Structures are given as structure tokens and as C-alpha cells.
Simulated assay, not measured.
Amino acid sequence: MTLRIHALFHTDYADLSFIKQWANAHNHPITVSRSYDNHSLPALDSFDWLIVMGGPMSVHDEDQHTWLIAEKRLIKQSIDAGKTVIGVCLGAQLVAHCLGAEVKPSGVREIGWLPMWLTQAGQAHPLLQDLPKQPFMVFHFHGDGFDCPKGASIIAETEAWANQGFIYQTAKHKRRGTWVLAWQCHFEVTKESLSKMVSNGNATIQNGLKEYPETVQSPDEILALGDKYIEENNERLAAMLSRIAASGNK
């Protein structure tokens, strides 16, 4: 089954990365909107999956980024229509916000390759059976966090923040074999995209090193650890995406 994937970008550097590789390998066409660059948003019936990517802004920055209003409307409409919606970092926060959960500063910055582990709900979930049961390293770049949306299951946590991801599914999603999946972290980074994120976020990283040295790593450390962990995290993401795709084919 061919899936029409539409992605919402919020910067020039936080792109689909490995998700694009997975989609291309499975012949799923991709379209993109850059609302910050005055792109129009797609019609609801023109895509099957909506992927909401990261960015440096807050979900509450509508005064500075008025395009957030229309994006939130599209995300909510997509969820209500029973479409698969995947949120990454800011994208996860936007999805949580659209589901009525509070999004706020977590009180700490997590920037770098940090250990994360699945909750009991995460370990039991059919979409996540290819993820380790023990803590594993994944790339983080965030300071805000979300509460658990009503009806969702929190699937992962770290020492610094308990809500690192959630899965949500309505009765309409169950009938269609679709899901809402949100991750604060970045399984999708490749060597190239990680380098771009580190370069563009260097000021934030340097400030974070001063304020939160236990949870923020230097650019050199981030890039070096990326060589060690990127491939296995891309494989984990591929497994999750393939499980979502297969659930809609039943």
C-alpha cells in the first residue's frame, strides 16, 4: 500500500532525515510545507500520514509565528480524521498541545545522546517491540516538555523528564489501523542532519553547557557519539514506521 506522507517543517535544518530514506525505500511519496516560509498547507484529503518536525520555537509563540495557528488546526483535523500523525520534538509538543495537554518548560535542557527507557506501557506496545527493554541512547534537543494527553499512553522517560513520548489512538484510528505517535527525541537524525542541528543550535548548546552541564553535551561529543548510535536508532525508527504502515494494511 502506497502512503502519501506530508511533512510540516519549521526550520531549514530540522528535516525528515532518515524518515525520507525509509519512505523512499518503500515508494511512499512525500510532500512538504514550510509554513515559516509562507507555504500553504495541504488539503486534508491529500495525505495519509502527517509528520510534524522540530524547531526552536515554542508551541505558544503564535504572536511571533502566526502560521502556528493554521498548523495546529491541521494537526487537530488530522487527528480527528483518524490519520496517522507523527510528532518529533516540537512536533510532539504541538501534537500534545492539540490534544489538550499542557506544554511548558521542563526546568532542564536535554541536548545530546542521553539514556532513555520505555515505560511498562511502552514495553508492551505492539509498535515498539523492536526497541530495547533496557535503557538505550538516543539524541535529544529540547527544553520544553508536555503532560500526558488524556487518553494517551506515555511510552518512555529519562532521568530529567518523565514524558518523553506517547501513543494515542481513538476508535476511528483503531478501525483504520492508524496511530498518533509523538517523541521528544530524534531517532531520525543522520550524520548530515545531526551536524546541521548542532551547527545551527550552537548558541543554545553553549548556554546549556553552562546552565545544565549534566544533561547537555558539547558539539564535539554529540558528533562523536552520533557515529556510534545513529545507525541503530535509524533501524529502530524504521521498525516503528514499518509496524505503523503494516497495521493500516490489515
Rank of each mutant, 00 (worst) to 15 (best):
Q120P: 05
W183Q: 12
K150Q: 13
E192I: 13
Q164F: 09
G145S: 11
H125G: 04
K133M: 12
E159I: 15
A152D: 09
S106A: 15
E102N: 13
G143M: 01
R175G: 04
H125N: 07
A182F: 09
E102W: 01
K191E: 13
G107T: 11
G107Q: 05
E110K: 06
H186P: 01
M137D: 11
T119S: 04
A121P: 03
K174D: 12
L114I: 14
A171L: 15
G151E: 01
A162I: 13
A121W: 02
H125P: 01
T190Y: 01
M116R: 12
T158R: 09
I111L: 06
Q134S: 12
Q120K: 14
E188W: 03
H140T: 08
V103D: 10
P126D: 07
G177P: 08
G151M: 05
A124L: 07
P135E: 04
E192L: 12
H142K: 06
G122K: 00
G107V: 09
E157K: 15
F146Q: 07
L127S: 01
L131H: 09
C148G: 03
T178P: 09
E192F: 08
S153I: 15
M137F: 15
H125R: 01
Q123G: 10
E192P: 00
D147H: 08
L99Y: 05
E192Y: 07
T158I: 14
